[in-house]
Computed example of a mutant assay.
Amino acid sequence: MPKIVDHDRYRKELLLKSFDLLAEKGYAAITMRQIAQGLGVSTGTLYHYFPSKEALFEQLVEELCEVDILNFSSRLTGKDLTEQTIAGFALFEEHRDYFLKQTLLMTDFYQHQRREGKDVGDVFKRVCDQAEKTMSVILGIDDPQILMLMMSLVDGLLMQELYGHRRVDYQSQAKLLSEMLTLYFEKHQLTPKNYEP
């Protein structure tokens, strides 16, 4: 009896396993052959699922975004805004190495595409739009400026760690952001669905 392969599941497994390889070597430096070797598959198998390194990377970014959204959704759903902020930042702190690797990998891809004279493509825009949309639903905040501020704060904290400035205390940052949002909502008489004064 022939073996039945769930191709979509296998493709996702290859993607997730390739993350550490890409993060370790960098997008620009690693080849499809090296990725295949690191995954323990033939180059032909890798090309069967991903027509190019760029396609593999873009699918990886989208897959990571889906996984991140599921992780954050499970942690934040059913809490008020203050609890959500603290829980979200706790997730960043617990998985700080993963998020730092993700940031470096995306930066490396961006630089590589620019050096090659290529457009960075829509992948970053798609995942940012998806993350913002999900945050809006979970947090009950419709204002895109507030959502952008929150996303930028997290990105900035990750960059501070990469600069080696200091190890970020995510819980202190979460409390500060929560207080700032609370004051902002009160001043502007806004009420997100999860806000409890």
Rank of each mutant, 00 (worst) to 15 (best):
G44W: 05
V123E: 03
T191F: 13
L190M: 15
D108A: 10
Q59C: 03
E24Q: 15
M151P: 05
D8P: 01
E63G: 02
Y110G: 12
L46F: 06
S172I: 03
D20Y: 08
F109N: 01
L46N: 01
M135R: 11
K187C: 05
L105T: 12
Y10W: 10
K133A: 14
Q189D: 14
Y27R: 01
A23L: 08
G44M: 11
A36P: 00
V127W: 12
R126E: 05
K53D: 00
F92Y: 12
M180N: 09
E161G: 14
M151K: 10
D80R: 01
V168C: 03
A174D: 09
M151H: 06
P2S: 05
M180G: 06
L183H: 14
F50I: 04
E13C: 03
S152P: 00
S18K: 02
T191L: 14
Q189T: 11
D97C: 03
R33L: 05
E116N: 08
H165C: 03
Y49N: 02
D143I: 09
A87F: 07
K3C: 01
K17S: 14
Q37C: 05
L176R: 08
P2D: 07
P2R: 06
E116F: 09
P144Q: 02
M150V: 11
K118M: 10
L76D: 01
A55S: 08
E66Q: 13
G156P: 01
V123W: 02
